[in-house]
Design a binder for these strands. Structure first.
Length: 992
RNA sequence: GCGAGGGUAGCCAAGCGGCCAACGGCGGCGGACUCAAGAUCCGCUCUCGUAGGAGUUCAAGGGUUCGAUUCCCUUCCCUCGCACCA
């Protein structure tokens, strides 16, 4: 019966499927005995890899554990298809993009003749659902109730999401507004980062626009450092570029509402489109060459100073407004530019600029910062040895100075109420104040070029969007309460949820295209993926039964009844009466029936999800539950999971750097894959798939299997003998004839049961499986050395140990554990209860005694090694009785040298031992200090000499020598005078 | 920068005030078994050591303590998240 996981696992898969073993329905067990675990539904925009395997195995192990604990356990799965990735993948496939084809063909082994089935979004999704995820999950042995699966594109699911969003809107948690998005000017639609060819990492920034003016004409100058407004010495324009004078709508950007809602702005030609995309009406009145602007004077809206407009070739007219302000005191760029302009001032005469005016420009400091002089930009330029505007060192100088000024710069007196404060703390406040007054405005732009896959230029556009108001204070309060109610695993994630709640503002919850549910009141929009996956766990509870209800009956009232219990107190449709004048609402009986099941399973006991999802999905999950459901339905726990590596590297399906579960399972078997994934780190830690170690794990399981089979076969022999009346299979306790080693192993077993159970309760799958498997293997190693395994007592012990361990390991390696357990007892491990510690087998004394023997063996070996001797005779001397008395005194007096000596010296007999007593007390004091009371008590009761005598045969075997055990004070044979070194629990040893 | 988590022997990784030179796995070395290989079993794997010992270690530096890998402070380094991406 060799270990053949393929056959064995196939049989169990079939058995589970045929019997519907994991289909969970409400039964006699009440709510406390039901457990509902979930994991984020997979997003089938590609195949399943080994990282997914772990994600889904973590909840499976817990589910299996709870089942053995007697719970009715529901572990469902569904499929998330909402949004653009699947649509995008199909587009790329249809266009025949090589990268995409290679991922499909080479990484995920899609057969050539199947490719065309993937050319519709749901066809694509279906392929990966059926051929990858479901197959993989079944192969892994996940205990899923398959009747409840659904996709987020199903019409009934959409009804459910529509209910959610209509309810949120009614509660005022949805709001319409403008929001900046990436927008392709060629396709004229918003695009996601997936759609970008260039600038994928680019983030748009909100620039402050400082409204310098010349009469009624505004020169809007974009900056990221609005606080430098008092340090501006001049403006720059590109004399060779084209500018426009245009009427720009500013109505949205005024708060007082008294002023004109349109202003005349001078901006670069490129800026016109940007402003229009950002929801402004722009009417171009006139085109002006940049050179015409040069030499004009503009007024600083904050200081009322007049400043010259200076020409500069470095001005990028494609960035923001194309008009920039110069702050030479604090910007190394501007410092260098000003130097160069001054040096070449005479050349400006051609623009009609007075060179003397330029030469007279003086930098103006607006903040002070430690470590720099009056003009920090000057120091920075010098420190970095910047030579010219094209010097690469300039960028480093700029970065460094910006950073330091932001965190350490203090504003000067001229800033009034902001004087003396650090930029970091006042920038936003200051900016808002000037904006309020109409001196500042804002616009978005990228810092670099961003190009769409279609080749079109991507700009920032403000689009009308619906937002979820996560910043609503009442909502935040509820969510916080949900967080404090939560069992957050590991505990330190709780803080992160709280932090996320404070940080979340408004979340745009719709998109212009993609799969999913249409916004119920505006079907132009689709509810985006992170927003249609917040309460779907509730949908699992009824997913397999709601199909019986026609879609058109799934009204808001239906879900109000089903999910909120509204009307469940009211008379049912059949018995509705209108006797009191008001028409009672008709309650849908079907909804009430479904509600019973919802009520039975809900809330979610544990949700297992990636730690990277704390800052969005998991917090949304908590928020929506807190808002929509009553407190008793809020999530009980969340376990977060770490990231996976493959041979120390990030997995990447595009590079083909992935392992598919199917391949791993064919090579090693599902139990090995599961065991490796769960045993190599705790769920929330990162893990690394290393083929070599997976192979070793398989070897370990195989060895375990072989040993187990041996025990089972022996048990069968015994029972055969039992059948013929010679030896009953289950001997009564009195007839077991257990020896010291048996009792020790059984005591260790009880420790193991306790530790594993505690670990499982905390989702510590690594600690649990290490304890049940590897650590117990160590105990067995010792046991095999210590005793004769052919004894009846040993057989009984090994059988008992095996049975218990199989039950402890069943959640991790369900195939092998169930099989072996069934062969051993007739029942699969999953059908019998989780082991309980048996107090009868707890035995601190025997554990302590074995520990003494272990130490003795180690000490003897140590001496053998260091002396390179091969002893004929080993003499062991247990400490004299008076030493035991000293030990007792140390225990009763406590580990205090002085106090102990005081007591000991009153004993005349002990006093006779003189200095030896003093030394001994010193050693015993530290011995006692290092141990707890219980251990000391146990030790004190042990007859050391008897322990060593009982181990003499064992020692003799280990070292192939004669073993003699003496008491130090009973006149031992002591040729080398070693006996006197004996101490309590540290016998003296002599080798000869 | 902000928030979270880390840095332990050749590698992975546990420990989180004394039982710690520090669990376990991998790798390496030696031995048993074997014709041989593999598997399995035993021992060793920081340095020194002809008696169970001593010395130096748990990113670096400082502190608290009778005692710190474990607690506190500072510094350096690494990973993850930071929004419209699932």
């Amino acid at each position: 019966m060799s270990y053949d996981p393929q056959d064995l696992e196939a049989e169990w898969r079939e058995r589970w499927a045929d019997s519907g073993r994991y289909e969970a329905d409400p039964d006699g067990r009440d709510g406390d005995e039901s457990t509902f675990v979930t994991v984020p539904y997979p997003y089938p925009s590609g195949g399943m890899h080994i990282g997914h395997a772990r994600t889904y195995t973590v909840p499976d192990v817990y589910a299996r554990y709870r089942r053995q604990q007697g719970d009715n356990v529901l572990f469902p799965i569904g499929w998330h298809v909402t949004g653009t990735p699947i649509v995008g993948a199909v587009e790329r496939l249809k266009k025949g993009e090589e990268d995409q084809l290679s991922v499909l063909r080479d990484t995920y082994n899609v057969p050539e003749d199947t490719l065309q089935d993937l050319e519709t979004p749901m066809g694509f999704a279906r392929h990966f659902i059926e051929e990858h995820y479901k197959k993989g999950m079944r192969q892994l042995g996940l205990s899923i109730d398959w009747r409840r699966e659904f996709t987020t594109n199903d019409e009934r699911y959409s009804k459910f999401i529509a209910w959610q969003y209509e309810t949120l809107r009614d509660r005022g948690l949805l709001e319409k507004g403008l929001h900046p998005v990436n927008y392709c000017t060629n396709e004229e639609q918003p695009v996601t980062t997936h759609d970008l060819l260039e600038g994928e990492d680019a983030e748009f920034q909100e620039y402050t626009v400082v409204k310098f003016s010349d009469g009624d004409t505004v020169y809007p100058m974009a900056t990221l450092r609005p606080e430098t407004v008092r340090g501006v010495t001049n403006a720059y324009v590109d004399p060779d570029a084209e500018y426009v004078r245009a009427a720009v709508d500013v109505s949205e950007h005024r708060s007082d509402g008294t002023e004109a809602d349109s202003e005349e702005w001078i901006v670069s030609a490129e800026a016109v489109e940007k402003l229009e995309l950002q929801a402004r009406d722009v009417e171009v009145r006139e085109t002006i060459p940049g050179s015409d602007l040069v030499g004009r004077h503009v007024t600083n809206p904050v200081t009322d100073e007049e400043l010259p407009v200076v020409p500069a070739g470095f001005v990028d007219t494609d960035n923001a407004t194309g008009v920039v302000m110069s702050v030479p005191a604090h910007s190394p760029d501007d410092w260098v530019a000003l130097e160069e302009v001054k040096a070449d001032a005479d050349a400006l005469a051609e623009y009609g600029v007075d060179p003397d005016e330029i030469r007279a420009i003086e930098p103006r400091a607006i903040l002070t910062i430690e470590g720099y002089g009056e003009f920090p930009a000057k120091d920075a330029v010098e420190e970095h040895g910047v030579e010219s505007a094209s010097d690469p060192a300039l960028e480093a100088a700029t970065q460094e100075l910006y950073n330091r000024e932001f965190h350490g710069g203090e504003l000067i007196e001229a800033y009034g109420e902001y004087a003396g404060r650090v930029i970091e703390d006042v920038r936003d406040e200051l900016e808002a104040q000037y904006r309020e007054r109409g001196d500042f405005d804002s616009m978005y732009d990228f810092a670099e070029e961003v190009v769409c896959r279609c080749g079109g230029e991507v700009e920032v556009s403000k689009q009308e969007t619906w937002f979820l108001r996560y910043n609503d204070s009442e909502w935040r309060e509820k969510t916080k309460r949900a967080i404090s109610n939560l069992d957050a695993i590991p505990e330190n994630t709780r803080e992160q949820y709280d932090h996320t709640v404070d940080w979340l503002e408004e979340w745009p919850c719709i998109r212009n295209y993609g799969l999913g549910t249409r916004l119920p009141w505006d079907d132009e929009f689709v509810i985006e993926p992170l927003s249609d996956s917040t309460i779907y766990m509730s949908y699992y509870t009824i997913a397999h039964r709601i199909d019986d209800v026609p879609v058109e009956d799934l009204t808001r009232e239906f879900f109000d009844t089903l999910l909120l219990g509204e009307g469940s107190e009211a008379p049912r449709a059949s018995e509705a009466s209108s006797g009191d004048g008001t028409e009672p609402r008709e309650v849908d009986e079907r909804a009430l029936e479904l509600r019973e099941e919802f009520d039975y399973w809900y809330p979610v006991d544990y949700r297992c999800s990636g730690n990277d999802l704390i800052s969005n999905h998991l917090t949304f999950f908590l928020s929506h539950h807190a808002e929509l459901f009553e407190e008793s339905k809020w999530p009980r726990g969340i376990t977060v999971m770490g990231m996976g590596l493959l041979e120390g590297q990030k997995m990447s399906s595009s590079k083909g750097h992935v392992v598919l579960p199917d391949e791993a399972i064919s090579e090693y078997g599902a139990d090995t894959v599961r065991f490796y994934l769960l045993n190599s780190s705790e769920p929330w830690q990162d893990y690394d798939w290393r083929a070599e170690e997976v192979g070793t794990t398989r070897d370990q399981l195989e060895r375990f299997w072989n040993r187990a089979v041996e025990i089972i076969e022996r048990a069968e022999e015994s029972s055969a003998e039992g059948a013929s009346g010679q030896r009953p299979r289950d001997e009564p306790a009195g007839g077991r004839n257990l020896e010291q080693a048996d009792r020790w192993l059984l005591a260790k077993l009880q420790e193991t049961v306790r530790e594993v159970t505690e670990s499982m309760e905390r989702f510590e799958t690594r600690a649990a499986s290490q304890t049940a498997f590897y650590r117990f293997e160590e105990h067995l190693k010792w046991y095999r050395r210590r005793t004769d395994l052919d004894r009846a007592g040993a057989r009984w012990t090994l059988r008992t140990v095996l049975e218990t361990r199989l039950r402890l390991l069943a959640p991790f390696v369900p195939f092998a554990a169930n099989e072996l357990h069934e062969r051993l007892t007739g029942e699969p491990a999953e059908d019998v209860p989780w082991p309980e510690p048996v107090p009868e087998f707890d035995d601190r004394t025997v554990v302590a005694e074995e520990r003494l023997i272990e130490t003795l063996v180690a000490d003897v070996r140590d001496i053998v090694d260091v002396t390179d001797a091969d002893p004929e005779t080993i003499r062991v001397y247990a400490a004299a009785e008076w030493k035991g008395e000293v030990f007792d005194t140390v225990v009763s007096e406590g580990p205090n040298q002085g106090a102990v000596m005081g007591t000991v010296m009153q004993d005349e007999e002990l006093r006779e031992h003189g200095n030896a007593v003093n030394d001994l007390v010193g050693d015993l004091v530290s011995f006692v200090r290092e141990r707890d009371d219980e251990t000391l008590e146990t030790l004190a009761a042990i007859d050391e000499r008897a322990v060593y005598e009982s181990a003499a045969d064992f020692l003799a075997r280990e070292f192939d020598a004669d073993v003699e055990v003496y008491a130090e004070d009973e006149d031992p044979i002591d040729p080398a005078g070693k006996a006197k070194h004996a101490q309590p629990f540290r016998p003296a040893i002599h080798l000869e």
